[in-house]
Design a protein around this nucleic acid. Structure first.
Length: 465
RNA sequence: GGCGUCGUGGCCAAGUGGUAAGGCAAGGGUCUGCAAAACCCUCACCACGGGUUCGAAUCCCGUCGACGCCUCCA
């Protein structure tokens, strides 16, 4: 039984889907107006791991991730660049999709866009007005009426009275209640807009997700996810809109990832402390980003610095070490020892699943993986053959695959490869002659080319990296 | 000011009532011509102060501190 932490109840709960074996999961994507950063990567990876794990446990996952392509910031940026806003956002949609691919994040089942959901959004707003959950104001805006929603604030644990509305946000005079939020914003001159019963305008920030959810997954879904900075107001407002509209519980489970932190602060566009996904991938492997995420709880803040990145990189190296072949002269393990290794593989699978079943406890699941790593390496040291290592290595691949780790060995160019082989042959000759100085010189030379050398009784092996 | 999350070894981090997983780093060792990799060994009483309990990192109260949200934000 999978248990997961539900923001709505602030408790871990047994996971039960609306339909057997199917998970309807909606994850808030990004607003597309510039390069995505590693904080976005964290969120995407968290839900990618959740999705992969649910699939591993036999569920069919309908994974929807939206793109917010109509928004103030997009309009501002488009104005700056003198570009059509929808063209600009489309460009960044493709760009983000590419980033995700490079991070080995599986494509969502569908990626709806606000600009392509306009009729449904308008219909949704009309429905809310009919139910008197919303009202058209004199200025052409349409607002959601929070006072009419008796359980408004249930996700974020806020009460309307406690929120100092207007303290930091300007209260529009057209609003009935200071906390009322816009479903539809009247267009300013020259702004991109769509026709509606309330005149030209565009949707407010929250209604799109409610509408796209409805369009893609129906009135009720299993999991709604996103960064914990979205709990309020975004997700709170989504609940208010959708539940007012359908009269049913919207999402059964709300899952929120913690914030990635750089220098003790949340990484965000507005703070400007940003490392883009592209810049990250220039110097580190995609696996490193994923390992960083796996090392901690998805709900906790993720400390992003050189030290944690180095640690992640080294940990990956260790896992990779277990995937390497047996030594050439291996004489074979006793049948008993080989059976022990296979048993360890199965034990690891069990503890891995047990850990992940408990609210996706990846640090604990990783610990069980290291146990298997150690068993494989010990078996190899003791002379296991490739066929004896195989079941355990296959299991390790299977489980790291659930995490979405690729564990690729580095590669160099093939023209260099011939040179490497020649240098190693030369070095082996030198070693035979006990010309250690020459031998070490050649090793340094290879190292400079990015080649690691390992000598053993059976001769010399090498690899890139 | 309100709401929420949290404070575990040098760093990252699991554990939420029975005497502290794991990874990285560090030190020692096996192996090696020397290395590297791998393997073995060593390395914490859990922010502070009270309380509950036979027993607390784990429950309660208080203090201090950090972070997130209350405005766009993954």
């Amino acid at each position: 039984m999978i248990r997961l932490y539900n923001t709505l109840t602030r408790k871990k709960e047994d996971f039960q889907t609306l339909e057997p074996n199917v998970v309807k999961m909606y994850v808030c994507g990004v607003t597309v107006y510039n390069d995505a950063h590693v904080g976005h990567a964290m969120s995407a990876i968290v839900f990618d791991i959740i999705r992969r794990y649910l699939e591993y446990r036999g569920y069919t996952v309908r994974h929807v991730m939206n793109y917010t392509d109509v928004d103030d910031k997009i309009i501002n940026r488009a104005n700056q660049l003198g570009e059509d806003p929808l063209k600009l956002s489309q460009r960044y949609i493709e760009d983000y999709a590419n980033d995700l691919k490079n991070l080995n994040v599986l494509p969502a089942t569908s990626n709806p866009q606000v600009s392509k959901t306009m009729p449904l959004i308008i219909e949704f707003i009309q429905g809310l007005i009919q139910k008197e959950a919303a009202y058209a104001a004199s200025n052409g805006d349409v607002y959601f009426s929070v006072a009419e929603d008796k359980d408004y604030g249930k996700l974020s644990g806020r009460k309307l009275d406690d929120m100092q509305a207007g303290a930091r946000i300007e209260v529009g005079e057209a609003k009935n209640h200071p906390m009322d939020f816009a479903l539809w914003k009247a267009a300013k001159p020259g702004e991109i807009s769509w026709d509606s019963p309330w005149g030209k305008g565009r949707p407010g920030w929250h209604i799109e997700c409610s509408a796209m959810n409805l369009a893609e997954l129906g009135e009720q879904i299993d999991i709604h996810g996103g960064g914990n900075d979205l709990i309020f107001p975004h997700h709170e407002n989504e609940i208010a809109q959708t539940e007012s509209y359908t009269g049913k519980q919207f999402s059964r489970y709300w899952i929120h990832n913690g914030m990635l932190q750089l220098g003790g602060e949340k990484m965000s566009k507005s703070l400007g402390n940003i490392v883009s996904i592209k810049d990250f991938l220039k110097t580190r492997d995609a696996d490193v980003m994923r390992m960083l995420v796996l090392m901690g709880s998805y709900r906790a803040p993720l400390i992003f610095n050189d030290e944690t990145q180095d640690a992640a990189e080294k940990s990956l190296e260790r896992i990779k070490s277990a995937l390497r072949p047996a030594s050439p002269s291996s004489s074979g393990l006793s049948a008993g020892s080989a059976a022990e290794l296979t048993a360890q593989a199965e034990a690891t699978r069990k503890s891995f699943v047990e850990a992940m079943d408990d609210d996706f406890n990846s640090p604990l699941a990783l610990a069980s993986l290291y146990e298997l790593v150690k068993a494989i390496n010990t078996a190899r040291d003791n002379g296991a053959t490739d066929s004896q290592l195989e079941p355990a290595q296959k299991m390790l691949r299977e489980l790291t695959g659930v995490f979405g780790l690729q564990l690729k060995e580095k590669t160099g160019s093939s023209e260099n490869e011939a040179k490497v082989i020649a240098l190693i042959a030369e070095r082996n000759e030198a070693r035979k002659q006990k010309q250690w100085a020459r031998s070490d010189e050649l090793r340094d030379q290879l190292k400079a080319m990015g080649v690691s050398i390992e000598d053993s009784k059976d001769g010399t092996t090498w690899r890139w990296g």
